[in-house]
Simulated scan of single mutants.
Amino acid sequence: MLSKPSNLKPVNAQTYSINCNGRLVQLDIPKIMGILNLTPDSFSDGGKFNTEKLALKHAEKLLSEGAEILDIGPQSTRPNAEFLSSQEEIQRIGNIISLIKKEFPEVLISLDTFYAETVRFGFNEGVDIINDISGGQYDTQMFNAAAETGLPYILMHVNPSYESMHEKIKFDDITLEVNRYFSQKTTELLQKGVKDIILDPGFGFGKTVEGQMKMIHEVEYLGFAKFPLLIGISRKSFIYKPLGKSSLDINEETQKLHMTVLEQGAKILRVHDVAQAKETLDQFLQKK
């Protein structure tokens, strides 16, 4: 295994800001991103929030519990999920983005999609951040759309095709492999003119349990401290399956891991259970 470069700065020594539609958002204090799935088939909350009324109610709950970003997902990316076209995603979103923006004008909205067309629709509806699980690999126009809109772009590590998304790959050194990917993709994005990039190591996507636990403890080395890190481990199987538990019964274990990544400089936690994550964040801030 390659040793880690000795001249690396830990991520938590860095300060970051992102430009969200002209609003400069500082990430010196980590932020909580609450998950709002508009899907009928997501693995733990499918069908619970897929109407305007239910989505607004859940958005209010997430924000009251401490979320500053809402991540709106029109398509499930769990194994064997229904595959939607961009047009089907847009139909599923409907007026929900604009309604949430009208009701909660201060909220930041992230749109979870791998389609450029959905991004352009979302931009016109008022979204602030692009959350692309595909790293631009499932739609060749995605990086162009990110550059055109000027929105911050969340770059996730994932296998190169939709069909191989969840194929488990055992890397010799997963941290090194993820950093190679980040280096290549961030270079492409910067060349396209994307100015604000957030890195997501892609927990739950095509990685072994052992690989993901290794990443948890090497978060400070991911991305070489050049870009802010988003960590999304909420209700992921690499936590609950080895314990013989369900996705809804691992809060204590998840919060311990959240503390671990916060201590290594994670700037955004993407979570289903906002209140519990906020408690962990508050404990982390008190320790600083």
Rank of each mutant, 00 (worst) to 15 (best):
Q14E: 14
Y16R: 04
S17I: 07
S17K: 13
I18Y: 07
C20Y: 11
V25K: 02
L27V: 07
K31S: 10
K31P: 02
L36R: 05
N37R: 08
L38Q: 03
L38S: 03
P40S: 13
F43S: 12
D45Y: 06
D45S: 13
T51S: 15
K53P: 00
H58P: 01
A59F: 02
K61T: 12
K61F: 12
E68A: 12
D71Q: 01
P79H: 07
P79N: 07
A81D: 02
E82V: 15
E89V: 04
N95F: 02
I97K: 03
S98D: 01
S98C: 00
L99D: 13
L99I: 02
K101F: 04
K102T: 10
K102C: 00
F104I: 12
P105D: 01
E106I: 00
S110E: 07
Y115V: 02
Y115I: 03
T118P: 05
F123R: 01
D128M: 03
I130N: 01
I133D: 02
S134M: 01
Q141C: 08
M142T: 07
M142V: 09
E148I: 08
G150A: 11
I154V: 15
L155P: 06
M156V: 09
V158H: 11
N159P: 11
P160M: 04
P160N: 10
E163V: 00
M165E: 08
E167P: 04
K170R: 12
D172K: 15
D173W: 09
F182E: 06
S183R: 14
S183Y: 12
Q184F: 10
T186W: 06
L189P: 07
L190I: 14
V194N: 06
K195N: 14
D196P: 12
I198D: 01
L199V: 09
D200C: 11
F203C: 01
G204N: 06
G206V: 09
T208N: 00
T208R: 00
E210P: 00
E210Q: 13
G211R: 00
K214Y: 14
H217K: 11
E220I: 00
Y221H: 14
F238G: 05
K245Y: 07
K245S: 10
K245A: 14
I250C: 12
M259E: 09
V261C: 07
L262N: 07
K267V: 00
L269E: 02
D273I: 08
A275S: 14
A275L: 11
Q276A: 15
E279K: 15
Q283F: 14
F284E: 04
Q286S: 11
K288N: 14
